[in-house]
């Protein structure tokens, strides 16, 4: 009663291109607007500070900053300086790149709950200066900053977080 069509291209056919096809490479360059909140966040990073925002209504302190509280739906304008320390909420050890190539040295991405923000409020960043085997959820970490003159207002102004 059921038919299941579709013609699989075998790997060898695909490699030899035994079929009609066209290719296209997109020229996709963007200038993304940072917006108010993230613009301010990046300025903070350049100054060696991690900034959060505080909701005037529910008073939670959020990072990364945003100009609204998505719970209370009110405008948020109150920037707060947070610490550059925190604890690992969760982490991974990544052995592959975005196009599935093997990495020589694994990366350790982690969600880091930043001290001074409300509990559970973290950012995505990398962990280093530690053996991957020793990384644990709950581990205390501290930001390792680029030299002041090298900082350019990017998330990468923090090189990584390291245990301390």
């Amino acid at each position: 009663m059921k038919n299941f069509f579709a013609t699989p291209l075998r790997d060898e056919d695909f490699k030899k291109k035994n079929f009609c096809y066209e290719t296209w490479i997109g020229n996709c360059f963007y200038a993304w607007d940072c917006g108010k909140a993230i613009g301010r966040y990046l300025e903070g990073l350049k100054e060696g500070k991690i900034l959060g925002v505080k909701c005037p209504k529910c008073e939670r302190i959020m990072v990364p900053p945003r100009i609204f509280c998505e719970w209370c739906f009110v405008l948020v304008e109150d920037f707060v300086e947070l610490k550059d320390t925190g604890k690992i909420n969760t982490f991974s050890i990544s052995y592959i790149s975005w196009d599935m190539k093997r990495l020589e040295k694994p990366q350790i991405p982690a969600v880091i709950e930043i001290d001074g923000a409300s509990p559970g409020y973290g950012i995505l960043h990398l962990i280093s200066e530690v053996d991957p085997k020793d990384v644990k959820v709950g581990m205390r970490v501290k930001a390792v900053w680029k030299e002041e003159k090298e900082r350019e207002g990017k998330i990468t102004d923090i090189k990584y977080f390291r245990p301390y």
């Binding site: 991974s92 990544s94 991405p109 995505l124």
Partner: peptide, 16 residues
């Protein structure tokens, strides 16, 4: 702005 410069891949979110 805040995540892509770290060089993520899709599996990160699942692994985390």
């Amino acid at each position: 702005t805040t995540e892509r410069p770290l060089g993520p891949n899709l599996l990160w979110i699942f692994a985390l």
